[in-house]
Design a protein around this nucleic acid. Sequence first.
DNA 1: ACTGAACGTGTAAACGTTTTCATATAAAGA
DNA 2: TCTTTATATGAAAACGTTTACACGTTCAGT
Lengths: 359, 359
Amino acid sequence: MKMAKEIESNQLLLKNIEHVSISAVAEKAGASIATVSRVLNKHPYVNKVTADRILKIATELKYRPNSSGRSLRGGKHFNIGLLRARFAIPDQLYMETMFTNLVRYITLEGYGVSLEFLKEETEKGYLSCPEVVASRKVDGMVIIGHMDQKELEQASTWGIPICLINNKFVHPNFCSSSLDDYSGARDVVQYLAALGHERIGFVYGSLEWPGTRARHQGYIDTMADLGLEVNPHYLVKVDEHQQNYQGGYFATEKLLREVPDLTAIFYINDWYAIGGICAIKAYGKRIPEDISLVGFDNSWMGEEVLPRLTTVSMEAPEICREAASTLIRAVENKPVARPHVNIRPKLFIRDSCAPLREK
Amino acid sequence: MKMAKEIESNQLLLKNIEHVSISAVAEKAGASIATVSRVLNKHPYVNKVTADRILKIATELKYRPNSSGRSLRGGKHFNIGLLRARFAIPDQLYMETMFTNLVRYITLEGYGVSLEFLKEETEKGYLSCPEVVASRKVDGMVIIGHMDQKELEQASTWGIPICLINNKFVHPNFCSSSLDDYSGARDVVQYLAALGHERIGFVYGSLEWPGTRARHQGYIDTMADLGLEVNPHYLVKVDEHQQNYQGGYFATEKLLREVPDLTAIFYINDWYAIGGICAIKAYGKRIPEDISLVGFDNSWMGEEVLPRLTTVSMEAPEICREAASTLIRAVENKPVARPHVNIRPKLFIRDSCAPLREK
DNA sequence: ACTGAACGTGTAAACGTTTTCATATAAAGA
DNA sequence: TCTTTATATGAAAACGTTTACACGTTCAGT
């Protein structure tokens, strides 16, 4: 009976860890708190011997500054918010990679990462301020995914620097790091043309977002520049409700049916391209002997499929590295040379393209 | 010349937002800071009229408590760390979903999320304390991905409650939320047996992790329970270096070659199963008429592939909801009834299985 | 030897909260 | 009317930092 309360062990009992504060270090080192702080923050005017002694004791005691205290005093949080906005289904593959790289590079700069999702508001056009911003947990924000101009306008009042990934907004508070989709698309068309292809199809989906529009335009412009015909039948838009593997499958079927003499197809993402590979195989044509395929995204799936897919890289590490360094320079009030960087993608040539064969 | 410094606009200039503190609210409401704090934290013994007035002014001024101040005073951060440990390639598909759900449910409980990756230490067996723990930014931790017992032992000294996803460690500081992989595997074998299948193959990869071991054991045990033969040739382990689509492809080829009268195959993940679908198609057999296939994971890829894959769900939302609620109960020192929950997976019956046909 | 600068250190204030303590008023019980 | 209790509020301390200020000491330059 007496033990009943004592045993109540269906709850977690965490051993209380005694946290070592700066005053503990100061006391043990026989110095003042101020001196310890100076040493730890590498201020000038502190005796080398004292500094060494304090440093030794600090590591000995495993002292780590309490971030709340530090933030409260300094108004700086050494923390970056990562806001995930809306994105389309084909981008799901890509998100994990982006998170990974963003966290890596932000961490490397000595900052932490607070993850938050965009709250979908029912009220039209009203963007609520992210929790991490409202409660002052972050010094800057990275926004990944889609937000429209109106929403970005509102984000500009948050009072902290914001870095957009694959999006752009011209405003003093904003910077961005994006893939140069237009150049990527140009490279694809030029590559196919260099292999001798002239009748090149294009499979695309929603053009709602800047990146997809740029790829589309890159195809159109480059075809024109090279003097190649852009027959309206060459362009197929996938069904609104099948923005994935199956969308690519059916779009390709349509293309094969309507334009039988097509020798190459450029897909606006790998996802559609992989659907395309299956459709073409099912149709009885060979890749790349009969028809060449190029994707866009360099998702790892392109490596897994047979034949291995030639595609355009997303340059996730580069985009994220630039984003982190630019944003954090802004956060630290250092001048940023180019607030809006464009990363030139690379063509990953694998096995899904071949030179045009004479009939 | 004079303007040079003034214009230096190649850096972000953030409009300084004036932050409203509790004292501003107090002043405007003609009350003391203490009273305002009490109202905001819904303490008893505060006059209804005063409370209403303060509340009105607080929302009017858009007051949000400064989290650093609050943390510093209360030692509580309203923040959960999300530590991403090691995971295998096939799990990449799954990570995005888990992040999404964890953030959703943790946010719903009124907490923020700090994302961090496990630091891969070169020194053997030494696990470094995550930054968010060391600098006291979080009240609890969710760990997703693989960590071995030795590492978990060290994590137990962090002094905060930890919730493991799909892993278990018996210790007062730990709770966990996991898929019941064993039951899932049993359900698959029972389902196939109910369709009349007796010669059921099993394709698996690394058994390094608890979940994969449980699935493997579930297959073995259930076959035995049902009196079905577990011919050693029925089990194929994919190549160490091809833990993905291709691994499933080649493992299936081997299976078809060595055990031609197999009527069903159970794959330990969807990834292998999709490779299997391609291998079987290439081999000239029909799915499900000639052979039935079941995957495990219910990744969205199973929906995209032809035929649509019958598979076992990962129950990501349920696992994450349980994880969030259990962990946060622990954080708030509320009793937790069952620190280690097992979520029973569901079989998603689609088009890749059929009753055994008499020859 | 005296001034002024450079160096080194400690005291105390400030950041924005929450909460304990004290105090004042109102209501209730004798 | 006088205590006792419940209700309502404010003053002040505390959380752990960083930093402005003050006060020394040392040292080079006259």
